[in-house]
Design a protein around this nucleic acid. Structure first.
Lengths: 361, 361
DNA sequence: CATTGATATGAATCCTACG
DNA sequence: ACGTAGGATTCATATCAAT
């Protein structure tokens, strides 16, 4: 049962789903904003924020109870190595985050959505609230995380410079053409999230073909991003109107194949061993392994380890030891060189040659 | 008892302070990082993060209990209109924030310290954690906040353009000369905070002469900023070594008078009334009040209100009404013009003239 | 068609002194 | 603790009309 929109109560509908069946959950729950009265702009027009009934709760305890219930269902249906993302603002995210930790979710990152065009504070009564917070967690401390590090780096490209993606993300609020309108031309939903943000989340923390759940689906942005990136989805939404518009939206979207969708940048190179390379003639037993500065340090043994000061140890441990580091091991492929045609050659580049030969055959 | 460093346990020492005696609290508590083992950099040197004994707790419950205790003391000693700031990272800030709300603290903003030079994630195992979170709260919902809006705007100046300060702040992590060193030349403290950040916090949310408390004072950055800005301070720190270095640091700092320290930009202009200005001859009873486009809308009445469509109403209500706005009132000083020397002149500029004349006399 | 200017709008815990 | 009334307060972006 997937690629469906379920019109119903989030907690109840989740309770019917199978345990450990979901790869990725994105949750955009009610924020419990606790606004009162009307807020007028400086010009005297009314500011139309989020004053929906679904955002009203009787008390903090009431909200905690609600939050605890839907989070518990999420924990139950999430696969052992699945991820959950929750978005919230200052009014709710601390309640949510604290309950998540109590339930045993293990935090990977908290991410700040820095809005490039936030609503200003009309009254100058506090700092302009220009961000929302996302919590990224896995089911428990021992979960094996899906994180496409190099895909993230690729998505974080700026002027062709690719840097490690950080925990502060800049996106504009959803507006203009992207913002869904109802039949009267008014915004369909008060809290539609940017598609780009959902695409980023799904791309870096799930695999193609995975099953994505959004328990508070609203305008179905999560489903839209999931479908576009080739993931399956289940969207739960209590409001019938949103479900109807959501179906139209999701039907209009197609899978768009790409290196990002398939996380090609994170594909691991073929795993090869020293003995393989020795028997293929890429290394010779007994040859010297040198530092970059040309010093002869250790000699290759038949099992692929190194002979160093009379001991046979693996090249990574040997590298750390020979460099006198406190660390037990460092990556030997970054340290060792051999002599080829009277030249120092990195063993890393020799491994590359070997991999190329394997790929060709 | 102020401008002191107290060497002792935070909770115990706070319990001895008088109730409702503190204007501003800045708290940088142990983060409960849950780090294990040793983290090595790519090149094999040891990364010296924070694994101090003071950051060790037995369990989440233990940490909650500790947090609840020090926050309760903060609540007790904070003045009714005082502010509290707490800084934390993803490991602890949700626990802290949730407990603050349970204790009745009312959130003003959560602020993101976006580090411009964060420690990279050496392993590429998650997003580079490049921020910490500050929570700014007052004692309860009805507290009257100290917020120097225009001082904040002034501090947020960029290329001479001053904008409303937002909830995402860019600061580099504390390093170089600012970073305190011990007698061996090693960094004195693992979590020293940037002085500029503390100055900003103190400048915008307290008044000159106020009493500032830091229950986890560490390198005494809070005290340094407080003294520089002419605030009194109480610094509590459990570690004797930090207290000794802290005393040296604070003794070397002097109050530096400035418009920021005195929040001059937020001084309210003299409050004046229409009748005053009428009797001083700046307005004439019966004269027309016009829109910016030159339309004659209403006539000035002797009590300073406006005659509009046969009714006498105050100029702010009249402005909203005459513009057909839904809002009951808008600022009339932004709306109304009168004729002086055959020119449209804003009544706001006339009020300025009147204030100047009052200041001269 | 390009450029300029007016208008609309976004998850908001959005005032405060005085009587 | 109320209510009432004086008066201070906004940034980025998309759209659309006007030039």
């Amino acid at each position: 049962m997937y690629d469906t929109i379920i019109n119903g109560n989030s907690i109840f509908e989740m309770s019917k789903l199978e345990a450990e069946s979901i790869d990725l959950i994105f949750a955009d729950p009610p924020y419990y904003m606790r606004t009162e009265g009307v807020l007028n702009r400086v010009e005297g027009t009314k500011f139309n924020g989020c004053n929906d009934d679904w955002d009203k709760f009787d008390s903090l305890e009431d909200y905690e109870n609600f939050t605890s219930q839907w989070l518990s269902q999420c924990k139950r249906i999430l696969k052992p190595n699945g991820s959950i993302w929750v978005i919230g603002s200052m009014q709710c995210i601390y309640t949510i985050g604290a309950l998540m930790q109590k339930l045993g979710f293990w935090f990977i990152n908290d991410v700040v959505w820095h809005k490039t065009n936030p609503t200003p504070n009309f009254m100058g009564s506090r700092l302009n609230n220009s961000h929302e917070t996302l919590i990224w967690a896995v089911k428990n401390k021992n979960s094996k995380l899906t994180f496409h590090y190099k895909t993230a780096k690729e998505l974080n490209s700026e002027n062709d410079v690719k840097k490690q993606m950080g925990s502060v993300w800049n996106f504009p609020v959803c507006s203009g053409n992207e913002r869904l309108k109802d039949s009267d031309g008014n915004k369909l939903h008060n809290t539609q999230k940017p598609l780009k943000m959902l695409e980023r989340i799904i791309a870096i923390s799930s695999n193609i073909g995975d099953l994505v759940l959004d328990p508070f689906a609203g305008t179905m942005t999560t489903g839209a991003a999931a479908k576009k990136l080739g993931r399956k989805f289940i969207m739960i939404e209590a409001d019938k109107k949103y479900c109807e518009y959501g179906k139209l939206r999701l039907d209009s979207i197609q899978f768009e194949d790409s290196n990002i969708a398939r996380a090609e940048f994170d594909k691991k190179p073929l795993r090869v061993t020293m003995p393989e390379m020795i028997s293929a003639g890429f290394f010779k037993v007994g040859e010297w392994f040198l530092f970059k500065d040309g010093r002869k340090i250790a000699q290759l043994s038949a099992d692929g380890k190194l002979s160093f000061n009379g001991k046979i140890i693996d090249m990574h441990t040997c590298a750390a030891s020979a460099k006198g580091l406190k660390a037990k091991r460092i990556n030997g492929f970054d340290v060792w060189y051999v002599i080829r045609d009277n030249q120092l050659v990195s063993i890393s580049s020799i491994r590359e040659n070997f991999r190329e030969k394997l790929n060709l055959s």
